[in-house]
Amino acid sequence: MSVDKATVRRIAKLARIALPEERVEPMMGELNGILGWIEQLQEVNVEGVEPMTSVVAQELRMRDDVVTTGGDAAAIVANAPRSEDNFFVVPKVLE
């Protein structure tokens, strides 16, 4: 399997990474290089094999469903590039 230019544009859109038009073709080449190399996995017989879903076999622990933290609005927005009154500020979404 390989990707064409339209697919590269589509996945860049899905990933929310701006990709200037002149970078589409080089990126297509880079991705196809990697995808071509990965292709060898198709030769493995995986019939009846369960996919790995947890690395180490263990029961997921449950914790009590209680509030343990909170009231830290100032700390939460401290790293925000723009904030006002403990809200994150973004460009206008609705006109």
Binding site: T7, I11, L31, L35, L41, V49, M52
Partner: peptide, 25 residues
């Protein structure tokens, strides 16, 4: 971008699911 592609609709089984089965092996 590679990760987005292998998880995108229509490719998940061919790539990600197969890779997780190979991980089991």
């Amino acid at each position: 971008l590679i990760g987005t592609y292998v998880l995108s609709a229509g490719y998940y089984d061919a790539y990600y699911l197969r890779a997780q089965k190979i991980r089991t092996l």
